[in-house]
Design a protein around this nucleic acid. Structure first.
Lengths: 208, 208
DNA sequence: CCCTTCCCGTAACAAGTGTTACCGTAACGG
DNA sequence: CCGTTACGGTAACACTTGTTACGGGAAGGG
């Protein structure tokens, strides 16, 4: 026995290198050699830590979800009221900072890769649904009188808005500034905030 | 002089083939040979119609925008009232049908390519801004009393929602059904529909 | 009918890809 | 202090990529 390695740590480091390459050179620039160089090793070492390029992508995708999930956990538990928690979770998931915008670029690259790789597509679906589920729970906590269907619909809407903001801010940060994103999220939260929504006639109905 | 060709038509056909390949095999599967095969010709012919692979991508992106723009024009002019027009434009831009979801996949692939190609990124920004501008005009027509800033903010929000719906529906059509998308858009249109929005305290302020 | 003129398919090219096998080497156990 | 063993770097592999050069052949004009 000699010279044991920390496989988990290597995989973590290589996943981080994958994010970095994706953020800088996009999906077409993601080669094993680029990842290796970014991680400060060789392609041989990469394929000793992962069986495949796909395995590397899958692991990097999983780790990205875990990271964003932990951040969402923190934001959620930091909110005093359910509404605060919901707002924090949504804002934190959007692209306020340049770092977040970089993460959005990585997310888009993974999404594009998922369109060609069923395994990645499965991950994307699972992770996005867990995010929707988180938001749905928070919406339900904010408005206990709402029907489950209405909570679910609101959650999918909010998630779509946030991911849309991320997607567009990744390429056009000028149009989708952090202020614009905050305003969009607050506007979308209005029905959750208000004691009752208004219909087209201006009458406030009781929605369940 | 002999044997003249219809260059424009060739380019159109090749752009269509590019969309088809992108929708089916994603960005990694977009090779000149795949495009040529889909178009029923050879790579030589492709590179006689376009100087470059990038030129092909740019042209295909431009044509995609023109097509969606024309569809938006039709939806817009079909609406009897400004609100109808706005709603039609947004719904038509979302992914109601499988054909639209395919288009969304193509859009995502172009977006991912834009993250590695400044020319495509420029196109993306320009096209997205023109869409925001279209929506902004319609919002202003719906609510003439709103300030330009409020119209603009509402427009960016609506566009982000629609593109988010497209993005998520492209991979998870089960969660983001056409009904869910319609509900999301209608919910987001509520403030435009209602004569006045409500603030957090439930009081209806006059917003300019 | 021939001849010119322009297409476009063929096929080669060099570069870069993921992947594999191999071997030097560094570190641990005795 | 040395031998063993796993680790990881080297380098080659087969393949695909975008791109280029060239030649056959079809269509039009005279």
């Amino acid at each position: 026995m000699a010279r044991r390695r920390d496989l988990k740590d290597q995989q973590r480091r290589l996943s981080a290198a994958t994010w970095s390459v994706l953020a800088e050179h996009g999906l077409p620039g993601l080669t094993l050699r680029a990842v290796a160089e970014r991680a400060g090793c060789t392609t041989g070492m990469v394929l000793h830590a992962f069986a495949d390029k796909r395995a590397l992508l899958v692991h990097a995708r999983e780790l990205l979800h875990r990271r964003t999930g932990q951040r969402a956990d923190a934001a959620q538990s930091a909110g005093a009221t359910p509404l605060d928690a919901l707002r924090s979770v949504l804002l934190q998931a959007a692209s306020e900072t340049e770092e977040k915008r970089e993460e959005a670029r990585v997310w888009i690259a993974f999404l594009a890769a998922a369109l060609a790789d069923p395994a990645l597509a499965d991950l994307h679906r699972r992770y996005n649904r867990s995010f929707v589920e988180r938001v749905r729970g928070l919406v339900a906590a904010c408005r206990p009188e709402w029907s489950p269907a209405r909570c679910a619909a609101t959650a999918t809407t909010l998630v779509a808005l946030v991911e849309g903001l991320n997607t567009l801010a990744a390429v056009d940060a000028e149009t989708y500034t952090d202020d614009a994103q905050r305003a969009a999220i607050d506007a979308a939260l209005a029905p959750v905030r208000a004691p009752a929504a208004m219909n087209a006639a201006g009458v406030a109905p009781i929605l369940r």
